[in-house]
Amino acid sequence: MNFSSSFFAGILWTALLAPAVAGLPQGQNSQAAVSQLGAVSFAGVPQSTQTIVVRVDSVLKKPPAVSLKKGDNVTVELKDPSAFQQGTQATFYTEGWIFGSGVAVKELGHEFNAGGASAAGAGTGETALGYTQEQISDQELRDRLNSADFVVIGRVTDVHRWTVPKSATPRRVSEHDPDWHEAVVQVQSVLKGAQVKGNKVVVRFPGRNDVAWVHSPKFEKNQQGI
């Protein structure tokens, strides 16, 4: 399970934990209080001393697919249950675990709310969350730029099927055949890497709408971007 899955926040100090969630592209953020220790909130979740049930006071952010609203009970698998008591209010940073009639998540970190949650605090939390999301978005872009060998701004001028050279590995027939295509990109400026001869680069991409490639970019003529 990767760290960057989701986070579930119980109180309002999300901004204070911004560095800890800087890699979290999406998730859940709610206000909640501990209602049961050593318990689970729905069948199908293994109960242990590390599981607690928290009641959601408000939802600040969540993936659209996940049904979670004020008053719902959520199971949290804690790293250190000794730090929690019934009634504790805290901000939990978590990743998804089990989805059934309710939601169960695994704690990545937490922050206690010494003063208790409040309606006014929820607004502060939303502001902090917005700031955090901006940071996450900027960090994601920085990460992508750092991992790329070559970054340009340009426009797609042509898209065509790639003809596999005869010297290449024998063609294999599979439902997952990528059906490679090529997009010719007219370079407007180079953000990273050396200058390009002729100001054109070719980007090879899978043209197939198979499940293996559904999340891969599909380029079209006249698209512009980084």
Partner: peptide
């Protein structure tokens, strides 16, 4: 994965 593009792919489990 319901919440993340980098989280693990899930399976459905029934115990009843």
């Amino acid at each position: 994965n319901p919440v993340s593009s980098t989280g693990n792919a899930p399976v459905y489990v029934s115990q009843d």
